[in-house]
Amino acid sequence: MREITLSQAVNEAIAEEMRRDGTVFLMGEDVAEAGTPFKVLSGLVEEFGTERVIDTPISEPGFVGMAVGAAMTGARPIVDLMFGDFIYLVMDQLCNQAAKQHYMSGGKLTVPMVLRTNMGATRRSAAQHSQSLQALVAHIPGLKVAMPSSAYEAKGLMKTAIRDNNPVVIFEDKLMYQDKAPVPEEEYLIPFGEAHIKREGSDITLIATSSMVQVAEKAAEMLASEGISAEVIDPRTIVPLDEATLLDSVRKTSRAIVIDEGHQSYGVTAEIASRLNEKAFYHLDAPVLRMGAMDVPVPFSPALEDTTVPTPEGVTDNARRLCAGEMIDAA
């Protein structure tokens, strides 16, 4: 199968959906000629014109609010938020407006929009350009949240998001844009709420999101060489969450570590761990462990930044200790 980058996969997904459905349009800062600073959207303005690929001023609450209005009245906007960190600026439009329209109107109004943004530290971008804020929006009923872990997921999830009748937030890891993966030429969609078992195993389950899937897969390799068999699962969407697949795995392996790049406290890892505790408690041989980013603003200095995120070595070490029956003092 051909291999393309995550960036190309997102671009293809959007182009295909824009060709298929004339109501889909894109807006955001420097999305047209510049194709975004990460060049993910290059070429789209040439095909679809500035009517459907719209450069906005630096007015995030303004254009996200406009996307909500356009979505409520018959369009399918895709809004590009240049950095995930800017989500704080648009929280009212996203959480008070987009998320609640369908419910407040008793099911009469819908907001079929996609907010695509990014996440991920270790790019030396410091505290306001490195955060992984998926937990913030996953907390709000009415929003769906997708976290692609490779080019394949990025394309399939984006196409599903565009066709979904709800506001969907997609977090792409900004360090993965140039990573290649096999992506079929034929059209495919990845349904929301279907986890993917990336690797089968029997001793411990590693549940990981986005780039943490790579971390978990590397850890699984290292563990295999020590005789520990790790299963790696990528939930792909954290809202909706495919609880059944996670529970089946944990009932089989009896141990789990949940890994996500958001801050560890009150995060995605805590939510998933607590569901496993509630629903698979009697199958567990060890406490479910959370591994998130350290609870500090992301520091600039490389010497500090690298210590704030989960690593394959850290996951391997924790998995080994859980399998040996040790207690681990998680923050």
């Binding site: 030396r124 410091a126 505290a127 306001q128 600039f300």
Partner: peptide
Amino acid sequence: GKGGSMHIADQSHGNLGANAI
């Protein structure tokens, strides 16, 4: 080293800081 170019601040001269937003 915590701030870097985009967050450089110099309290002693009244510079409350650069801002990446």
